[in-house]
Amino acid sequence: MQFGMQRFAASLPDFWGDSIHTCCFATFQLFDCLICLIQGGSSTEEVLGFSSRKNKDWFDENSQEIQELLAKKRAAHQAHLTKPSCPEKKQAFRRACSHLQRKLREIQNEWWTSLAKRTQLSADIGDFRGFYEALKAVYGPSPQVQSPLRSSDGKVLLSDKISILNRWSEHFQSLFSTNRSVQDSALLQLPQQPLRLELDEVPTLDETYILV
């Protein structure tokens, strides 16, 4: 493949100039590098790896064991697909599926039991940080959704955090700093409760004991 590309680049007319040849050779070198990566066995998993979540659950903490179980199931499935009429391979595939499901249930139950014990221990000894982390592992991280706001004149839609906070500050400053007058007729329309003069009396000793 590389020899054919070089022949193609060499067969270009001379009137294209040296810049075209340089660009073509640079492109061919990048393509050759890509072919080497593909044919050399390097996979995306080896080069980039997997993304890890900050809040892990029972599947993430037992990823290696689960991946091994899944690999055995895939191997049994491939063996069954190559020869579907073979009863031994079909039974082996069913046993692999049953074993995978049983192990996944065991791993999940062990994870939840361990998390419940850790949560209870944190609550008993007053470890609020550990208790909060355990609850966070159960319910997951709380989504932080920021609703956009419009500016005071309504023409600009604010979406960044600083602009939204400044807009709320502007709103409450204008709300509480404005001088408002209330008419006496509106106050007179409010329902009046009767005076409770017994509240002015000093509480007795028995009432104090009851309250304490």
Rank of each mutant, 00 (worst) to 15 (best):
R7Q: 15
R7Y: 10
A9G: 06
S11H: 03
L12W: 02
D14A: 13
F15W: 02
D18G: 15
T22S: 14
A26Y: 12
F28M: 11
F28E: 09
Q29G: 15
C33V: 03
I35S: 06
G40Q: 00
E46L: 13
E46K: 05
G49C: 08
F50P: 12
S51F: 03
S52T: 09
R53K: 07
N55F: 14
N55M: 01
D57P: 12
D57S: 07
F59L: 08
N62T: 14
N62A: 08
S63F: 09
Q64T: 07
E65T: 09
E68C: 03
L69M: 11
K72W: 04
K72R: 02
A76F: 08
T82N: 10
P84S: 02
S85T: 14
S85W: 09
S85F: 06
P87R: 00
E88D: 14
Q91I: 01
R95H: 14
H99A: 12
L100M: 07
Q101T: 07
L104N: 10
L104W: 00
E106R: 07
E110G: 08
T113F: 09
S114G: 15
L115H: 13
A116Q: 05
A116R: 11
R118S: 12
Q120C: 07
Q120W: 01
L121Q: 12
L121R: 04
S122Q: 05
A123Q: 10
A123P: 15
A123C: 13
G126K: 01
D127N: 15
F128I: 03
F131W: 02
E133Q: 14
K136E: 04
A137H: 08
P141K: 00
S142F: 11
Q146C: 10
S147Q: 13
S147G: 00
R150P: 10
S152Q: 04
G154Y: 05
K155N: 06
V156L: 06
L158T: 04
D160I: 00
K161S: 13
K161C: 14
L165V: 03
L165T: 14
N166A: 05
S169C: 12
S169L: 07
H171E: 06
H171L: 10
L175E: 01
T178Q: 05
R180C: 08
L188G: 14
P194N: 03
L195G: 07
L197F: 04
L197Y: 08
D200Y: 09
E201Y: 13
P203T: 00
L205E: 13
I210A: 13
V212A: 06
V212K: 04
